[in-house]
Nucleic acid binder design. Structure first.
Length: 800
RNA sequence: GCCGAGGUGGUGGAAUAGGUAGACACGCUAGCUUGAGGGGCUAGUGAGCGCAAGCUCGUAGGGGUUCGAGUCCCCUCCUCGGCACCA
């Protein structure tokens, strides 16, 4: 036998990456008969390089795409860069470089030095860069479609303001009152902003979740975020202030008789309207000295507004208070306080000596609020009615008087997409003194982001673009009056909210979405990515798809048929990898040393892909050994036998096992199965009996995980073309079934013996065989068995 | 606090419908190779007892159901992830 060439994995990486590019191995046939859209979340090239955690997610998605490609599907596996946004801009500010040059360099490094070297089966001819005018022109187009449809509105409202990033943030970007990216406590400001009306589809998006094949934890996060609650809106007349009435939302209309005061959110935009004249100064002073919004709830903070509210059913007057424990931005920004039956109201009432009345039986309101159900009390004609029924009855009474109605409230809020920053696509709007906000005509897109030297945020609530006078001042597209451009840029979640729609159509400069390609390729067949985007990106993407579907631009309302949240790679006991935790691991050196195939196998072997795992580099050597073995045994297989029943069974079983493992994304067990096959063939190779057909099967099955060595061996085995297209071996379940099985024999539930018999041996026969076992007879010691349980092909349990 | 996912050898992790716990891999030990090495190969490796055959105990802890429980039910403890005053 000729001496085997030494295995040089990094050299194979380079060789095959070059060949694949030359041969267009991963070019998708966009017209192919079996389109399969395999999507992975595109990376955000800020300052950091890709770390092992990123490589993990990409590799896992790539394995699935490769598997489908081998099965003969026309797989479309595109990739791009989400390069606009505050992260990049903040970093650019820090290092004093322009974000455009920084981004270009990072994109180049990500693509050439990291993603391509990982051996991803990506079709780079459809690459997207969100900062390219070729792309953001169409992001602006998407915004204009929303604007025309009335789904984008310019209005004033309370917004989350980050005093460090000097911009507003979406609700989803605020975590426990802190800025998601810099951790600074967020302030509430009242600014005119662009809102996207995501709430319009709240119910539909909630309902559609039931039809989606998504990771359960992701769906749950979305359900919680949408936060549907049923209840009622109730009107209270007001005396002693500028407003004559206020509407509150409650989920417990059955407790209405227990309402003893009202509370207005301290951050309510029109709080002043609720204050009695005599209390005005006191309230103003109080409002400026509130604890920060992120603090632990303090139910002792509140102020009497001096106003009286009239109970809609009893006519009794009650005080009106303001307190920060009520959120000005949720519901109507005001509540009816029922201290007997709401924990927070109870604490507040206690702190301020307000009346507590029990109106639902079952608890003792002197010691704690009773939030359960029970018979109604102190509720006039409704006394004795179960509270579950009372909900409906109270609403009926209110409706009869025109003082209330049933209402469904969502926690989901409209999406604020304006950002007072530089590094993003300018919103394509011109503010005309006559016509108000006017969309830039589509033919004039893109509205190019002007090149400015000083792109620092101003902190005045206005983007730095406002300083570029020659850019800002334009005539109104309708009437020609001197007007000003909108100077805010859009949130980068708008960029990433529709990128997967664009991928198929990247070849078209004259339209965002080519009709034929879009109808052929959408929705995405499988989307794999981190669950940190469960309520951000995934919610926005669903909204945009739904909106564009209503307008007829895309074929269906839901973008992702199947979504799987990959697990996270942790390191050093510090949890998920991130730069701020200082536990990032760079994959580059490992690829250079062990080859991409080794790294891919290693990280996929760390644990179940959907659960993640703890990074270590110790096991890497094991995968290197495995590849060495594959290399050796595949080339040493010389037998042309294809009928040996034992080996054929093994082959078919292996194919079935690997296939099932990949389908369920349990890559770790697929790799374990491959280890076993490789060991077996290797052993046979040493005896000179290894079969070519086994070697070929091994190479085919290993290909999604270790694509470089697989193609090299494919070539060395004398096969034509590439292993990566339409080569997945068939398996026959009949051939995979074992003719002989091992039966375990238990005595009183403890394993005492095993024996072999034909598969399918009936239970009665098994019992007989079990009792024949010498060990069993010994333990029975002449006593008759009390009971025998036999499970065919598995076990016999002898009970004494 | 609420919601979700989990606790299996020295380590990462396997166990289709309740049916031989610990696949596969790392590490370790011994031996063989010996062109040195973080090299390759072979064997062993849950704990305890035993020369051995074998026995006992073992899937966070405690109860339960069952011929049989890592798997099902109840309680307790712990870890990780997410959401956090949403009326």
């Amino acid at each position: 036998m000729a001496k085997l060439d030494r295995l040089d994995l990094p050299a194979l990486d380079a060789k095959w990456q070059r060949r694949w590019a030359e041969r267009g191995t991963y070019r998708s046939d966009m017209e192919g008969p079996r389109p399969f859209y395999c999507l992975m979340m595109f990376p955000y090239p800020s300052a950091e390089k890709l770390h092992i955690g990123n490589a993990y997610a990409f590799t896992g998605a790539d394995i699935y795409g490769r598997y489908r490609r081998q099965r003969g599907d026309d797989v479309f596996e595109p990739l791009g860069f989400d390069a606009f946004g505050i992260h990049s801009e903040n970093y650019a500010l820090k290092v004093g470089e322009h974000p455009a040059t920084l981004t270009a360099r990072n994109v180049e490094y990500f693509r050439e030095q990291q993603l391509k070297k990982l051996g991803l089966g990506v079709d780079w001819s459809h690459e997207i860069d969100t900062t390219s005018p070729d792309y953001y022109r169409w992001t602006q187009w998407v915004f204009l479609q929303l604007f025309r449809a009335g789904l984008a509105e310019h209005r004033e409202g309370p917004v989350n303001w980050c005093p460090s990033c000097l911009t507003v943030l979406a609700d989803e970007q605020v975590l426990s009152g802190h800025c998601e990216r810099c951790g600074t406590a967020v302030e509430t400001r009242y600014l005119k902003q662009w809102f996207i009306r995501t709430t319009r589809y709240a119910q539909e998006m909630l309902d559609a979740l039931d039809t989606l094949d998504w990771s359960e934890r992701t769906k749950l996060a979305q359900r919680n975020w949408i936060g549907r609650s049923e209840g009622a809106l109730i009107d209270f007349r007001l005396n002693g202030c500028a407003r004559d009435q206020v509407t509150v939302f409650t989920t417990r209309p059955d407790t209405l008789y227990g309402a003893t005061f009202l509370v207005i959110g301290a951050d309510h935009p029109q709080l002043g309207d609720f204050v009695g004249a005599a209390r005005r100064a006191a309230v103003e002073g109080w409002r400026t000295s509130l604890p920060p919004a992120d603090a632990e709830p303090d139910f002792s903070v509140g102020i009497d507004l001096g106003t009286r509210a009239v109970h809609p059913l009893t006519g009794v007057e009650m005080p009106v208070w303001a307190a920060p424990y009520v959120l000005g931005g949720y519901g109507t920004g005001a509540i009816m306080a029922v201290p007997g039956h709401d924990e927070r109201d109870w604490q507040f009432a206690r702190a301020h000596g307000l009346r507590i009345v029990a109106v639902i039986g079952g608890g003792d309101v002197d010691t704690a609020a009773w939030t359960g159900e029970g018979p109604m009390l102190n509720s006039g004609a409704l006394d004795g009615t179960p509270s579950t029924e009372g909900k409906r009855k109270v609403v009926e009474m209110l409706e009869a008087r025109g003082a209330g109605r049933a209402h469904v409230q969502f926690r989901l809020r409209d999406w604020i997409i304006s950002r007072q920053r530089y590094w993003g696509p300018p919103l394509p709007i011109i503010h005309c003194p006559v016509h108000g906000p006017v969309g830039v005509p589509e033919a004039e897109l893109p509205v190019l982001l002007p090149e400015v030297r000083d792109f620092r945020p101003l902190g005045t609530g206005v983007s730095p673009l406002a300083q570029v006078e020659e850019w800002v001042n334009v005539p109104c597209p309708i009437c020609g009056e001197p007007s000003r451009r909108e100077t805010d840029v859009n949130d980068n979640f708008l960029d990433s909210g529709w990128y997967f729609m664009r991928y198929p159509s990247t070849g078209f400069a004259d339209r965002a979405l080519d009709h034929d390609l879009t109808w052929r390729w959408l929705p995405v067949d499988i989307y794999i990515g981190g669950n940190e985007h469960a309520v951000l990106h995934l919610m926005y993407a669903r909204f945009l798809m739904r909106a564009l579907h209503e307008m007829g631009h895309v074929p269906v309302p839901e973008p992702f048929v199947r979504f799987r949240a990959n697990g996270m790679l942790t390191f050093g006991g510090k949890g998920k990898m991130s730069k701020s935790k200082g536990n990032v691991v760079n994959p580059d050196a490992y690829m250079a040393r062990y080859g991409a195939d080794t790294l891919r196998l290693h990280i996929m072997f760390l644990g179940p892909f959907l659960e993640g795992g703890e990074w270590n580099e110790r096991g890497m050597l094991g995968q290197a050994r495995f590849l060495e073995r594959v290399w050796r045994c595949a080339q040493a297989a010389t037998s042309d036998d294809v009928t040996d029943p034992v080996r054929e069974r093994r082959r078919h079983r292996t194919i079935a096992a690997v296939e099932a493992a990949i389908e369920s994304l349990h890559y770790n067990t697929a790799i374990a199965t491959l280890h076993e096959l490789a060991r077996a063939i290797d052993e046979e190779a040493r005896e000179g009996t290894a079969r070519r057909v086994d070697a070929r099967t091994l190479v085919e099955l290993v290909a999604p995980f270790a694509p470089h060595i697989a193609d090299e061996l494919w070539e060395r085995l004398g096969e034509s073309g590439t292993v990566h297209r339409a080569t997945w071996p068939e398996h026959d379940p009949a051939l995979a079934a074992a003719p002989r099985v091992t039966i375990a024999v238990q005595v009183n539930g403890k394993l005492r013996a095993t024996f072999e018999c034909d598969a399918g041996t009936p239970a009665a026969e098994l019992e007989r065989l079990a009792l024949d076992q010498s060990r069993v007879a010994e333990l029975l010691d002449g006593r008759p068995p009390r009971k025998l349980i036999a499970v065919p092909d598995r076990i016999v349990n002898v009970v004494v």
